[in-house]
Structures are given as C-alpha cells and as structure tokens.
C-alpha cells in the first residue's frame, strides 16, 4: 500500500486466516484482526467500483468464517489508525467472535402482496413533506402475517435466534442467527415455505457476517 492510499474497513475477525482472501489486507488490532481493501489515493468511498469490490470481498469473507461486519464507509490511513478507530469495540468484538464462532446470519425478506400508493411529488411544495408522505405510504405494507408466523416458527426450529425487523420501504424481514452447518437446512425450510405460500414473494439470503447480531449480547 502506498503512503497516500488508505484502507476501507470491512470487518473484525477472530483469526488472521479468517480474513485472508485475495484482495483483502489483514490488520492486527488488539488481539483480533481487521479486514480492509486498499482504496486508491484521493478516491471517494462512494465510487461504484470501490463499493462493488467491498461488497464482493465481504461476501467472500462471510462464506469463509464468522466475522463482525463494519458499516461501509469507515476508512483509515494506516493500520495504527484503524486500530485506534476501533479501539472502544475491540474487547467486546473479541468476546462476541469467540462466542459466535461457527455462526452466520441469514436474512429473509418478504414483500407485501398489496402495494401502497406512492404519493405524487408534484403535489408537494416541500421536500420534507414529500419525504414524510413517502414514509407514511410505506406503513401498513407488511408481508402476510400468516407467512411471517410460519417462517418464524420453521426457521426458529433450526436457528439460534430469529428477530423480526420492519423494512422502511415496506414488507417484513427476519434476521436469523444460525450455525453455519445449518444453513442448508434453512434453505430447505424456505423451499417448504414457498410451497405453502406460493403468493408471497420472499428471498432468503446469506450467509452474511454478524450484522444485526453484532450489537447485542
């Protein structure tokens, strides 16, 4: 890495080898390891290619082993600065990584079968009022409650934890903490749900790093 480039942080890992994949730099930090991608000098973190590169690297890392995801956008100009930026989290992250090793998150996103009416921008003179109306329009667009109950039950039998989350743009979402060895069982459960609820559009995705379950105890 040149002196004028910087690191875009991706996640926190228990072992160095957990983060060792092509294109990813591993930075020691307080007994754990941070993964990062190198950003070109004077690049903006909003650049499309950099975002896509980070997304792919994070997927590859998640496929390899459990880690804690760092929200995209955090950068550091040196390994020392990266460790300093994360310093307040490191002890808790190490403990969490030890307890949740071998686990991953899955996400089940279910759409509403009834689509809310979108407000007409031309009817609003204030941008803030339009944004509030957009938000209001998304309320009540949750997925079929019977589907969500069934999904929660079926996946709950396999998972360590299941948490219901509300999506701002409508629909409903389950965050699922699961042993990595049980991911295929969760996919099978999703296929059963698809047969039971053919009208409900949903997507089960993952494995993802610890995201929703990275902040709780």
């Amino acid at each position: 890495m040149s002196a004028s480039s910087r690191y875009v942080l991706l996640g926190a890992h228990l072992l160095r080898e957990d983060a060792e994949i092509e294109g990813v730099t591993v930075l020691p930090a307080g007994g754990i390891f941070l993964s990062a991608i190198d950003a070109p000098p004077r690049s903006n973190v909003a650049e499309r290619d950099l975002i896509a590169k980070a997304a792919r690297a994070r997927q590859e890392l998640a496929a390899k082993e459990t880690f804690i995801a760092i929200r995209y956008g955090a950068t550091a100009s040196s390994p020392e600065e990266a460790a300093v930026k994360c310093a307040v989290h490191l002890d808790r992250w190490k403990s969490l990584l030890e307890r949740r090793r071998g686990m991953a998150e899955l996400t089940l996103k279910a759409g509403s079968t009834s689509r809310p009416t979108r407000p007409d921008r031309a009817s609003f003179t204030s941008g803030a009022a339009y944004l509030r109306a957009l938000r209001e329009a998304s309320r009540g667009a949750e997925a079929d409650p019977a589907f969500m109950v069934a999904a929660r039950e079926r996946l709950g039998e396999i998972a360590e934890r299941v948490e219901l989350r509300r999506r701002e743009e409508g629909g409903s979402e389950l965050a699922i903490l699961i042993r990595r060895s049980a991911v295929s069982a969760a996919r099978n459960a999703a296929e059963e749900l698809r047969k039971l609820f053919p009208a409900v559009p949903f997507l089960l995705s993952g494995p993802w790093p610890l995201e929703v379950f990275a902040d709780d105890e």
Binding site: L9, G11, A12, I51, A54, A55, R58, I68, A69, I70, R71, Y72, A74, K85, C86, H89, T107, W208, P209, E211, V212, A214, D215
Partner: peptide, 9 residues
Amino acid sequence: HLLDRGVVI
C-alpha cells in the same frame, strides 16, 4: 448489506 448493515464506528 454492505451499505445498510454492520457496526458503525
């Protein structure tokens, strides 16, 4: 997931 999830530092 990249843009909307994970720990904020």
